[in-house]
Design a protein around this nucleic acid. Sequence first.
RNA 1: UCCUCGGUAGCUCAACGGUAGAGCGUUCGGCUGUUAACCGAAAUGUUGGGGGUUCGAAUCCCUCCCGAGGAGCCA
Length: 478
Amino acid sequence: MLAGGRAGGHRRGAEQEGGGAAGGRRRPGEAAGEVEYNPAPMSQPISATSVTSIRELSQHAGQEVELSGWIDNKRSSGKIAFLQVRTAGGVVQAVAGRKDVSEEAWADIERVTQESTVRVRGTVKEDKRSPIGVEIQANGFEILSLTQDYPITPKEHGTAFLMEHRHLWLRSSRQRAALRVRSEVEQGIRDFFYDRQFTLIDSPILTPAACEGTSTLFETDYFGDKAYLSQSGQLYLEPAAAALGKVYCFGPTFRAEKSKTRRHLMEFWMVEPEVAFLEFEGLCALTEEFVGYLAARILDRSKEDLKVLERDTAKLEKVVPPFPRITYTQAVEILNREGNPLKWGDDFGGDEETILASQFDRPVMVTRFPASFKAFYMQPDPENPETVLGLDLLAPEGYGEIIGGSQRIHDHDLLLSRIQQHNLPVEAFQWYLDVRKYGAFPHSGFGMGIERFVAWMTGLTHLRETIPYPRMLYKIYP
RNA sequence: UCCUCGGUAGCUCAACGGUAGAGCGUUCGGCUGUUAACCGAAAUGUUGGGGGUUCGAAUCCCUCCCGAGGAGCCA
């Protein structure tokens, strides 16, 4: 009976997804008319420069240019029209006077709709009223493809509606800004490690067993065997650290936990450095340097996007190392003092993280946790064998844990006993034990969730807007 | 999986036991510097599905479905 109920539930779930994809409400719009693309080139003077990015425009002031893009918005009166044209690099306003264009072009301007693709030709003019400093005085205009009934209008919408139309929502200014910040963060991560002679190691997505033995993993069929989508690249990074010294991986990570909060995704991106002969103090320093570098870089290179997102950058300007450090034991004392009773040995929840982070204006490092609720591979603290040399970096403003790291156990026999204590299959970890068997070395590393970091930088409250196509509990469309 | 709140026009919402409405979008008309432009007019509904209470249900009850927020778990 239970099994039958589950099967029914799954089937209904599948139908809902299918229904969402078919989009009953959207069908009539799709059937309303055939979508046409009109490739006929407009008569083009030799002098017009083809522009592929809005950012090039200011270099062409006074010149004749031509660009293709989408109508972001339009305002018009009887004799003048203002067309916001979006293409790579942003949005530029094209101003068209009725007398400045042909009759055919004016008719197209009158009927053009939001999100139609168009080609505009005109002179680049500097104008103080323009947010980007320039606009185009149009003398030619052509519709390439006329859009009808674009679902996302320039007014407010609920997030449920917007998530159903995520593929179109990406075109909105705030979404463009958030994704550009994400891209800058990812480039910053690669530059940070490249500049410090780290080698990028792509860890596998399909794995034969659970990495840490705790999380729920997505299971898949591997030619008759079970395989799992990776929840961390770390274990595969440690052998690479023996080969190359300083390594990192950066890729998607999967957790099948049925988490339904603004801080969770089923599929997210994680960057994980691993460094040979780096011990705990060095790990804390690397973590600080890394986060400080990225925050400074975003402040420097993503100003315009942060403005669109209305991010309070004063808060980010404080993200300068050194960061405050407290031990787990001190954290428990703070929580008890702040009226959030917690026994030594209990893990933090979201509320506890927020209270701890609110005590500081910079990210705070919490270190030396009880071994009981941390991963099996963490090196014991020599000053207190009940705790491990692990660190969590808690971001301010309620963004919570963005980094988790530790020094790893490098002693073969100690690691073996930990694997056994955690009831993990020793055979599956033989290769991991080999790292200690053939030239043991102290080493440390951390993992950072990209979406949480981007959410913090952008001030977005929900991870779903920090990744182009979020995968959430029971939601995988589009 | 559990708890809380919600589902009314394409969208955002109002009406809370007595004739289903507004703004935006759409269509039509007007306007030579607009910045979510503005002004005038028009069209638009199986009130999430099913069942029940009632003279009468968008409104109250039951149930299912869907969505949002949170808990646990984590990055």
